[in-house]
């Protein structure tokens, strides 16, 4: 474990080097554990916890804590039991107007669109973390054979519910937002609802399956 000051009010806790190969089940569990402990304990002065693939950024109030104190909290906060991971099935309308990049993904991977859909919906995914924007799940488990580079220029607006592939990752956009991933389909499922408790449908460790609708 490596601790670095990312700013005067945040500490970056890393479980491995900053390279794509560090996306692993081991690191996912370490990140989930630290996030779960800090979120459950809510130590005084800890403002936010931003998990990622192999690191956790801990944002704190510098009038209450310093980097050393936050490091101590990361090491000493007691474990809490993890809840049983849920499996969430997400129905997807692949292709068509709401999946405008399916053909491009098929071309890039030298498959038919049907094969891309079969592979995308046949895999088991796990939520590494929610990040970027409210409720946005970073999923692991995309078959390597359908990995496709991001668009060279991001779209100004990706509609909420868009299911997309970006490099070796796949995900669902919870809200209208800019985005550079390739949109292969659309789901009516709402991933984020501020009035719901919890507001995000998926949590770290949730299992996800995409079902062709």
């Amino acid at each position: 474990m490596r601790y670095r000051a990312a700013s005067d009010r945040s500490l970056l806790v890393s479980f491995g080097p900053e390279i794509p190969e560090e996306i692993s089940e081991t690191n996912r569990l370490l990140v989930e554990n630290l996030t779960r402990r800090l979120v459950a304990a809510r130590p005084r002065g800890i403002l936010n916890v931003h998990p990622a693939y192999a690191s956790v950024l801990v944002v704190f109030d510098p009038l209450t804590l310093d980097h050393r104190g936050v490091q101590h909290l990361c090491e000493s906060t007691g474990d809490v039991p993890a809840s049983e991971p849920r499996t969430v099935e997400i129905p997807v309308h692949y292709g068509g107007e709401r999946g405008p990049d399916l053909a491009d993904v098929a071309r890039h991977t030298r498959m038919t669109p049907e094969e891309v859909v079969r592979l995308h919906s046949g895999a088991d995914y796990v939520v590494h973390f929610l990040g970027f924007s409210p409720g946005f799940p970073y999923l692991g488990g995309l078959p390597e054979s359908i990995a496709t580079p991001r668009l060279s220029s991001p779209r100004v607006r990706v509609p909420a519910g868009s299911v997309a592939i970006g490099g070796g990752q796949t995900g669902v956009y919870p809200a209208d937002s800019p985005g550079g991933w390739r949109i292969i389909g659309w789901t009516p499922i709402r991933l984020f609802d501020p009035a719901a408790d919890p507001p995000a449908l998926l949590t770290m460790g949730s299992r996800v399956r995409f079902e062709p609708a």
């Binding site: 990312a6 700013s7 009010r9 945040s10 970056l12 890393s14 900053e18 390279i19 794509p20 560090e22 996306i23 931003h50 998990p51 990622a52 693939y53 192999a54 690191s55 956790v56 950024l57 944002v59 990040g131 970073y138």
Partner: peptide
């Protein structure tokens, strides 16, 4: 060299 997605702080 690419950077693995990591947490971002206000003012970064």
């Amino acid at each position: 060299g690419r950077l693995l997605t990591e947490g971002a702080a206000l003012g970064a």
